[in-house]
Design a protein around this nucleic acid. Structure first.
Lengths: 125, 125
DNA sequence: CTGCATCCTGAGCGATACTG
DNA sequence: CAGTATCGCTCAGGATGCAG
C-alpha cells in the first residue's frame, strides 16, 4: 500500500483527482474491507467475534488487520472495554457511515452495465 | 484477481451488496485503472503512446493489461486502425463515462474526512 | 507503433500456533 | 475473548526483450 503515482507533466493534470480517488480506493481495497463495512453499516456495533461469525471465511489475522486499517483510516472506531473477559466492539464513525451513499452509487453504476459476462471470460486473442 | 468472498449465512445478507461493490471495485482496483480512466474522461480519444506519455511511470505491460481489462469490462473501447504503422485509439464507452459522477462522489467522500493523520496513530488500549 | 512473452520480486493473504 | 507472530504460497506488477 501507499504507492505514489504520476511522475510529472505540466500540460494538464487530470489525475490530480485520481490521487484522491486512489487514496479512497486504497482504503477500501483490502480483501475484506467492504464486507466488514457492509456488516457495520447502519450504526451497528459488533464485537470481534460477531464479525468472525458473520464472515466465516476470514481468519483472525485478516479480520484484525483489516479492522486496524479501517480504524487507522478513521472509518471505524474501536471500543475497548477493560474487563475480563475482554470485550471489544467496532462501529462505523460518522465518516464511515457517510461512505454508504457513495458505495451505493458505485453499486448502481456497476449494475447498470451492459449484461456482459466478466469473470468466466476466457481469453480471446 | 477474482477472489470469491462470503461463505454462506442466511440470517441476513448485508454483503449481497458487497458482492456487487466488490465487482465494481475490482474493475477499478488495478494499479493504474483510475489514472487511465481520468485521462480518458471527457470523451477524449487517446492512442497507446499518448497514454504512455501521459503516465510515464507505467510499463507497457501494465498499460496494455489494464487497458485490456477495462475493455473487457466494457469501460473503454479500443479502435484499431488497420494500417501501417499501426494506430490504436482508446476512449471511454458511454458506461465508462457514466462512472465519473460515482468516482466524483467517492472523491468527495475521501476529501471530507476529518483531518486525522494516517500513520502517526499510536495504539490506545 | 502497438502489444505479447518471459523472468523476478514483493506485497497480500491464508493457516496455524501462541499470549494477555 | 481478542488479538499477535511466523511461515509459506500465490499473484500482481516491474524490467526486459521479441514480434507483427
Amino acid at each position: 500500500m501507499g504507492y505514489i503515482l504520476l511522475g510529472k507533466h505540466d500540460h494538464h493534470t487530470p489525475m490530480t483527482a485520481a490521487s484522491g480517488i486512489e487514496g479512497a480506493i486504497q482504503m477500501l481495497e483490502g480483501r475484506w474491507k467492504l464486507v466488514i463495512l457492509f456488516h457495520l453499516f447502519g450504526g451497528k456495533k459488533l464485537r470481534f467475534s460477531d464479525l468472525e461469525r458473520a464472515i466465516p471465511a476470514i481468519s483472525q489475522k485478516m479480520l484484525s488487520q483489516q479492522l486496524r486499517q479501517l480504524e487507522q483510516d478513521g472509518i471505524v472506531t474501536r471500543i475497548v472495554h477493560a474487563q475480563i473477559p475482554p470485550k471489544v466492539e467496532y462501529h462505523l464513525t460518522d465518516w464511515g457511515e457517510s461512505l454508504c451513499p457513495a458505495l451505493d452509487e458505485l453499486l448502481t453504476w456497476a449494475e447498470s452495465r451492459t449484461p456482459l459476462k466478466r469473470e468466466g471470460e476466457s481469453s480471446k486473442e
